[in-house]
């Protein structure tokens, strides 16, 4: 570990946002805990190699995301498609509608978003990282980050809007 970076204070500072990011990707407490622990384990063994200590946060999120991708790769290959072919949809979702939802409902909606967009969307809402940092975390160019975010956000809002409409219809039928 680099000088000035105490492991315990580092954990105290980042374990919550890392866990929240992991949970938004996995939707499983045990998997999110594993990813968070694994991230700090990698830090404990390799963190000393990081020369620029201002990049600790990016390093940790990058490590967690890599570990997630690695675990996913073992389970299933990502479906590949051209991002440019995905239509950009701009649904009309109101803040009031979102306020009536709870966190698991939103995460359930995120789970229905195309997998390649999920991490960018989670980082969009969870973290205050700059787009450059997000690009580093996801290991993709900034332009790709933005296009994936835009499409992912559109999908998420579309799913939430659809859920709201279906809920409204059900209430009417009752």
């Amino acid at each position: 570990m680099g000088p000035g970076l105490n492991f315990e204070s580092l954990v105290a500072r980042f374990y919550e946002p890392l866990y929240q990011f992991a949970f938004s990707l996995t939707r499983a407490e045990a998997d999110a805990c594993d990813l968070t622990q694994q991230t700090f384990y990698v830090w404990a063994t390799k963190g000393h190699q990081l020369r620029d200590q201002t990049k600790v946060k990016t390093w940790l999120f990058t490590t967690l995301h890599r570990a997630f991708l690695e675990s996913r790769r073992r389970q299933v290959r990502f479906p590949h498609f051209e991002l440019e072919e995905v239509p950009l949809d701009l649904p009309t979702l109101s803040p009031a509608t979102v306020n009536q939802l709870d966190s698991p409902q939103v995460l359930q909606a995120l789970a229905q978003v195309d997998e390649v967009y999920q991490a960018p969307v989670a980082l969009f809402y969870l973290e205050d990282c700059s787009y450059k940092e997000i690009a580093d975390i996801l290991n993709i160019p900034i332009g790709t980050v933005k296009s994936r975010m835009a499409r992912g956000i559109a999908q998420l809002q579309s799913i939430l809007t659809r859920g709201e409409r279906e809920g409204h219809r059900e209430r009417q039928n009752d």
Binding site: Y15, E16, Y19, Q20, F23, S24, E29, C33, V98, L101, D102, S103, Q105, V106, L107, A122, Y125, L126
Partner: peptide, 8 residues
């Protein structure tokens, strides 16, 4: 909603 994810 994302920030409400509870940490064990």
């Amino acid at each position: 909603k994302f920030k409400q994810i509870a940490v064990p």
